[in-house]
Nucleic acid binder design. Structure first.
Lengths: 297, 297
DNA sequence: ATAATAGTGTCTTTCAGACAGTATAGT
DNA sequence: ACTATACTGTCTGAAAGACACTATTAT
């Protein structure tokens, strides 16, 4: 019996795989650059603010060079040829936050032609959640000016149009990122186009105010994704210590979802994911509150 | 008041944006190639088979050149420098199926270093569902040997290990793709590593039998994604005509999820998504059955 | 005393999933 | 008569969300 080794097979030009690979010229076609962009979220109290409420924050860096010099961008950078996408994302994340073993997940790959003026750049975005108490206040150890910025996002216009068989639903959001010193924003349009059974979703930036490149729509997409995950998975527990009170956990939910949740509904909702302990939190000036741990089930 | 036009700003080297871009050399760094890979699913009856049951099918092409010559791969190809990722995916899809206006969604971007022997190739995968009655039997109009292959996927080993604080859950799946002539398969391992609150999922190909590159794990990932979508969205209606019977719709669900669903539960589950009509399906030799339409709500 | 918050019990509604039963057609 | 399938109604348990009430503590 003859064993057909794949390396013996020849193509139409009569080349074996080895010969083919030796002749292969990767520069025959022009190639794009590939970067990773990181959406690093945390939930923390405002530094100088009257209300002690926790807020959703996003790590942003101020661009020190062209293009978009002086504007605020997601941390990220070009991938190396000898590292996987995940490794590149993890490397960028460590450079910015110094945090090990954190939650990180691929979000979406953005490949529009004109999204960077330098050259064709395709960017894979990653979403990450870090516990704010594990971080230094200043995350920037390199030259980059990296800062936590409070995220706020408001739906301010909504429109439904039915034309024949297609139905479009457009929503205008104002995304604002701010800290004590800076305040940047953008207007992003989310369009849902429903044709028969097929729904297409499109994001467009209508106006941007010091948010670099197309990052405003990446942030909107990531924010929506994060909120879905918080409501449908146990991802929020990443942002809370081993022992936590229910109000502490609820604060995280409220910060991310940006809405009030009633105590009772919250208790029921998460009852399957937490275990009661016999310990109590001793906050001076307040009633002592029961502590819970995470129950992975 | 001085208006700071961003094009007037200079960087540390004293260059304006225009000067910077003129001096920018995209070839300073080596760049990867980028491709799109399409997962095109449909649900259709087996051509020559005793049972008239509908099966989940996936469009595959036989590779005519190195690498992986003779093996079966997902349709796809290199992106052009002047088209978006979505446009590249749509172009590839049209080349293979001739179908317009179909459902298509970005799935995941695969960027492991050694996934192609030619050069570093990063591949964004797209998932698509096409109605089999809108397709020609032979989807191949170009030289490619494109064929529908019935998908079957079986969990044959499962393992849970707890070591200290980390808990691993490993599942071995046998993925098989077949039609009247060909039969290819692979063994893929899905690992869930739970460390504290953070769960990581990893896919590995343990063995591959004429499924090219790392496509076996892309298929597994896409299949899992498709099943989640079928259970949580109204995506299955794409695979059914405007007027359909409940058994017809149920067949689609059963083919994709690969399990029996009881009539009553099915009726309840989809009751909010369908509208009864006064028409009946006239299948010779069978009881006439009520026809429904899709209710987008 | 009053207000704020923690913690409890009970009430809906909704929905997935399972069981029983009727009606209609073909063998 | 028997079987297969279409179709209907009812029951369960689980989960989401809302209301009322008690206990504790600070002011």
């Amino acid at each position: 019996m003859i064993i057909l080794d794949s390396s013996r097979k020849v193509n139409k030009q009569g080349l074996t795989e080895e010969e083919f690979l030796r002749a292969y010229d990767p520069n025959k076609f022009e190639r794009p650059s590939v970067t990773v962009d990181m959406l690093v979220f945390t939930v923390a109290e405002e530094k100088k603010s009257a209300d002690r409420k926790k807020k959703l924050k996003l790590l942003m860096v101020k661009r020190g060079d062209h293009p978009c010099i002086g504007q605020w961008a997601l941390p990220g950078g070009f991938i190396n040829m000898d590292e996987n996408l995940d490794e590149a994302a993890m490397r960028e994340l460590k450079e910015e936050t110094n945090v090990d073993n954190i939650y990180m997940e691929q979000l979406y790959t953005w490949g529009d032609v004109g999204r960077d003026p330098r050259t064709r750049i395709i960017s894979t975005s990653y979403i990450s959640l870090v516990n704010s108490r594990l971080l230094d206040v200043k995350a920037n150890d390199d030259a980059d000016d990296a800062r936590w910025m409070t995220v706020s996002c408001e739906l301010f216009q909504e429109q439904r149009t039915v034309t024949g068989k297609t139905c479009t639903h457009e929503q205008l959001y104002r995304l604002a990122l701010s800290n004590e010193e800076v305040n940047v924003s953008a207007v992003v349009k989310k369009s849902r186009i429903i044709e028969g059974r097929i729904t297409k979703v499109k994001w467009d930036i209508l106006e941007t105010n010091d948010i670099a490149f197309d990052h405003a729509k990446i942030i909107m997409y990531g924010l929506e994704n994060l909120r879905n995950k918080v409501e449908n998975t146990d991802i929020a527990f990443i942002l809370v210590p081993d022992l936590f009170t229910l109000s502490e956990l609820k604060e995280v939910y409220e910060a991310i979802l940006d809405r009030k949740i009633s105590d009772e509904n919250f208790r029921d909702k998460i009852s399957g994911m937490v275990v009661e302990t016999d310990k109590y939190a001793e906050t001076p000036g307040e009633e002592k509150e029961k502590l819970f741990t995470y129950n992975p089930k």
